[in-house]
Design a protein around this nucleic acid. Structure first.
Length: 402
RNA sequence: GGGGAGAUACCGAAGUGGUCAAACGGGACGGAUUGUAAAUCCGUUGGCUCAGCCUUCAGAGGUUCAAAUCCUCUUCUCCCCA
């Protein structure tokens, strides 16, 4: 890498980072790596506790890709050992411990999703499960690991402190969590570890453990958390996340529902649009700016053509109030259907009660006409034309009798 | 081991015998409006064969005409003392 390219790489990293511990180390490691023609080992860990990887997780993954493109080696840690403990992070409900099968299932789904953003092929990256080293540990080895830190040190963790203040439970095994994560770093001899900025404490632990075990301490690089559709941090528990599995249309729509104020950080963290261009966009019409943002994110999660299609579709459906082009057709028994039952049957509403409320609120249309009669009967006959049923602005279905 | 406090709907949080399917806030959904599934305003927010009925306030019993509310036991959490 030339000096210029290296500077460019560094500034790209810095643009995405919220903390780099420490920049000096990072620069030094990069130089050494180049001199010895030895790629840096860049660690990123995820626990397969649920199936959806969302756009928020992807900020560190984007950084990881930057490293990969610069010739370094991503080292992915799948926290299958940690996941099976059932870590009740930050909440007082006990997440049920996952079975080996569930972990396996989630892991597969994770890699398919991450594969969209990162090159996971042989040689391009390294993948480990932390059960590789944790499942063989006996109790005394566990104790030895626990002895590597102190209660006071662990209690410094922001998340623990907040929960203590709020008088929420902090379980003992959670205290072991940072140590386990740190131990991963020792095992894979990480040069750099990435994570969201809520991970800083855990990343520090890796540094500490590595030094205690005679390794050079990893650089900790954290990224800001992407905000969800409601302005809080993106998290599945807030249901404000954009899953990577969401359809192009959905990704587009969800980005469009971000608050205007969130656009700047989204552009920076989730797209590669240059800062000059972002500035220009933000000075222009917010709708256009957000449309561009949505298209960028969409193209990144899916691809260019589907992003374009989603954009066109959005304009047609919401600005020009046209019908979407991909309305599914359902075939139901030919008879008189009470409207609420029909809406539930078509999956447009979760329950007949919800359907009733929506009907009363004027959110339901049959053949383009608003229907506020809860007792409306829709007659389906064999061979008759399909009927368009709409619930809210986003849910449509065609029905016909059989 | 001793003492005290607590567990409420998606989340947070009121409610301490009937007027409670349960205030309020957030989220979500719907409507109006628009610049977009932004913002703002209004409405809805357990289920059903829906003017009625059924199941909910950690779990199991009990008292009562009537319990989220009172009693007993169980489970879990927090705080103080040891």
């Amino acid at each position: 890498m030339t000096l210029n390219a290296e500077n460019h790489f560094l500034s790209q990293l810095k643009a995405l980072a919220s903390d780099i511990i420490s920049e000096a180390d990072l620069e030094r490691y990069l130089q050494v790596s180049q001199k010895r023609k030895k790629p840096l080992r860049v660690k990123f860990g995820i626990d397969p506790t649920f199936t959806d990887v969302h756009v928020g997780h992807c900020v560190p993954i984007r950084v990881l890709r930057l490293f990969q493109e610069a010739g370094h080696l991503p080292v992915l840690i799948l926290g299958d050992a940690t996941a099976r403990l059932g870590d009740p992070t930050g909440r007082n409900d006990q997440r049920p411990a996952l079975s080996a099968e569930e972990v396996e299932h989630n892991a597969t789904s994770y890699f398919t999703q991450i594969g969209k953003v990162l090159d996971l092929s042989e040689g391009a990256c390294e993948i480990h499960r932390n059960s590789e080293w944790f499942s063989g540990m006996d109790f005394f080895e566990v104790l030895r690991l626990l002895s590597e830190s102190t209660v006071a040190r662990l209690l410094e963790r922001d998340d623990f402190q907040k929960r203590m203040e709020k008088k929420l439970p902090v379980h003992l095994h959670e205290m072991a969590y940072p140590l386990m994560q740190g131990w991963d770093s020792v095992q894979v001899r990480a040069d750099v570890e990435l994570g969201g900025n809520d991970q800083l404490f855990n990343l520090h632990m890796g540094r500490q453990l590595q030094e205690r075990h005679g390794q050079q301490p990893q650089v900790c690089l954290t990224t800001p958390l992407l905000l969800g559709t409601d302005g809080r941090k993106m998290s599945k528990t807030y249901a404000n996340h954009i899953p990577l599995t969401a359809s192009a249309k959905d990704v587009f729509g969800k980005v469009m529902s971000l608050e205007d104020d969130a656009m700047e950080s989204w552009f920076r963290l989730a797209t590669s649009v240059s800062s000059e261009e972002v500035r220009a966009l933000l000075e222009g019409h917010p709708r256009e700016a957000k449309g561009r943002l949505a298209q960028e994110v969409c193209a990144w999660v899916h691809d260019e053509p589907s992003a374009q299609a989603a954009a066109d579709n959005f304009v047609q459906q919401f600005r020009e109030k046209q019908l979407p082009t991909d309305i599914a057709t359902f075939t139901l028994e030919a008879k008189d259907w009470p409207l609420p039952t029909l809406l539930k049957e078509l999956g447009l509403c979760a329950s007949t009660s919800e359907a009733r409320r929506m009907i009363e609120g004027g959110g339901v249309r049959v053949s383009q006409n608003v229907c506020t009669d809860v007792r409306f009967l829709l007659t389906l006959e064999i061979g008759k034309e399909v009927v368009l049923v709409q619930a809210g602005k986003r849910k449509f279905a065609y029905v016909q009798g059989t």
